[in-house]
Design a protein around this nucleic acid. Structure first.
Lengths: 225, 225
DNA sequence: ACCTGAACACCGTTCAAGT
DNA sequence: ACCTGAACACCGTTCAAGT
């Protein structure tokens, strides 16, 4: 809103929101969230750190814009062909996970912000819309949105943390393996193969299925028009 | 393991893991995760920042120990009286959420670490145990653990973020309200009361119920012994 | 053995001043 | 109008040196 804008007066700006956002996402993918500093981003743009503050009020503001950008197009996953409400919801949740996975530390960026731009609201509206049109009560539809989103973010946060732990410090599974094999955790020992599995897609689908199944139990058939 | 220990030789130590952890959790509750720095913690212990590194290899190590300590006693929630598997699972999930809520930014601390100590593994073993003893397949039991934990962490992360947004910057609901009332999101407008509700317990229980309901659909009755 | 003091290599953010 | 330069008030971490 109060960003520098319109008439090409003075020198042509080296910076602008869109280009900066693109560079920030590139930097994120290359080096991860911890290495994404205002100084390094400024460097990548050939500018001093202070200059960024003409386009983003704070670093938090930048991260929120990045989160918003990550969700672009995700709402469209509901429009995929036909399919009943459960298929459309599944498509939306999968699209959200994939959007988060598309960038290194994507889930951490998203979880750390409160994006309320068009792509996030569009996604939410599409999600709630699928349920309302299927005959779910308003209350259930809104709560289902939060539940699926919180699950998806929680899962992907873990998934990306596990991926990073794999390369870098491969003690991931072995720490668990050792602690468990030691004795005292009979049920974890018995399920170790699944606990240390890296089939994150399978795991995500399992939980998503549980949620959809739970919703099905609450489903009243749509009223005829 | 290599921490200073046992024989009371030399000067009595002003620091030790337990006391430092307690102080760190107090500081967390008073000021939040962003204000929990090694220097401020050292200050609260009457010591220089460098001294902390004799007890915690890194700040990440400290945070992991804090996460582990938060989960102490949560596994015992499965032992509550009788109740079938679904009641016991519900009790475990509720206990985890409450343990995270017990400290400011508790979910953020937990999500940012990979605690694999006795309280976390004990919780996991209890959870998987309830399902295995109820007749669930090992694979399903392990996946259900991750699903419920990821949901619980995801939900509580959001819940604590929303709580902080309320006091401090009460634009939380109003930003959403404005964006939604503006037009383009018919389904969000229709469900605004639920979307801006602060009944986080109700929301958590809704999602948890969906998961339990989903698990029920997968449930094979336990084999007779 | 335990802690201090001081340093190293950084951070986010602000703001007068230049062009 | 847009950016620089320089500062302010911090960070996590290391390590010789003191006691």
């Amino acid at each position: 809103m109060s960003s520098p804008s319109s008439p090409a007066r003075g020198r042509p700006a080296r910076l602008d929101r869109t280009r900066t956002l693109r560079t920030a996402l590139d930097l994120l993918d290359q080096s991860g969230l911890d290495a994404l500093t205002m100084r390094r981003l400024a460097d990548a743009m050939g500018v001093q750190a202070g200059a960024l503050y003409r386009y983003f009020a704070t670093k938090q503001d930048l991260l929120t814009a990045m989160a918003e950008r990550m969700m672009e197009g995700v709402a469209e996953a509901a429009a995929t062909d036909g399919g009943d409400w459960s298929e459309r919801l599944t498509a939306l949740a999968r699209a959200e996970r994939e959007a988060l996975l598309a960038h290194r530390d994507g889930a951490r960026v998203f979880a750390g912000t409160h994006a309320t731009g068009a792509s996030v609201l569009g996604f939410a509206d599409a999600f709630v819309g699928v349920l309302r049109e299927a005959g779910f009560a308003d209350d259930a539809a809104a709560r289902a949105l939060y539940t699926v989103v919180n699950y998806t973010v929680g899962h992907t946060l873990e998934e990306q943390a596990a991926l990073q732990a794999q390369d870098g410090a491969p003690e991931d599974a072995s720490v668990l393996r050792d602690a468990v094999t030691a004795g005292t955790y009979p049920h974890l020992s018995a399920t170790l193969p699944t606990l240390t599995s890296t089939d994150f897609t399978g795991l995500f689908e399992f939980g998503l299925d549980l949620l959809i199944e739970g919703l099905r139990a609450r489903h009243a058939p749509p009223a005829r028009e």
